[in-house]
Amino acid sequence: MKQKFTTITSTCVPLPIENVDTDQIIPARFLKATSREGFGENLFRDWRYSADGHPNPDFVLNDPTYSGCILVAGKNFGSGSSREHAAWAIADYGFRVVVSSFFADIHKNNELNNFVLPVVVSEKFLAELFTSINADPKAEVKVDLAEQTITNISTGNSEKFDINPYKKLCLSEGLDDIDYLLSKRDDIESWETRHQ
């Protein structure tokens, strides 16, 4: 899980749907596992497979035309439930980056905590990116964490994206929040003494 993140250049999987909620990313009936592994096989389960378990040929993950480790989704991605299983499913399937013009808060944190980078782009950049992928499924995108830039290689257009410096460090160094908090035990205890 703790995979250091540097620069990624990849083709994309387009999902031009808005308000993709975490129930679509991973339906509740697949949340019964007690480990973090294996959620990728049920990523987008009810869009990806018919009720009898056959792959739905119209869904993008079943279309061999599209591949890559960058998922490009419509705005307000990851709304709804706080289930981290959604981020585990995305990571386990092999995505390293999710691009959208807007993310739901909890899901965005969950992606970051699993070393998947949520990249927020402008509506215009997103629309152009969908157009590029539509015109050429092999269109590539470059995501540079150090520079905080995302580039649509087909058009050459580039945008800066935001990430707080702390999370950027965690991603580039492969550190997690628990490592940080454990180093602060003394501060926590002295705060408790003062406040309880």
Partner: peptide, 20 residues
């Protein structure tokens, strides 16, 4: 507020959470 499982682990381990 609601949190993910990594954050549940943070709270169990330190009674704290890192949150923007």
């Amino acid at each position: 507020f609601g949190i993910g499982t990594s954050e549940v682990e943070m709270v169990l381990a330190s009674q704290c959470i890192l949150q923007p």
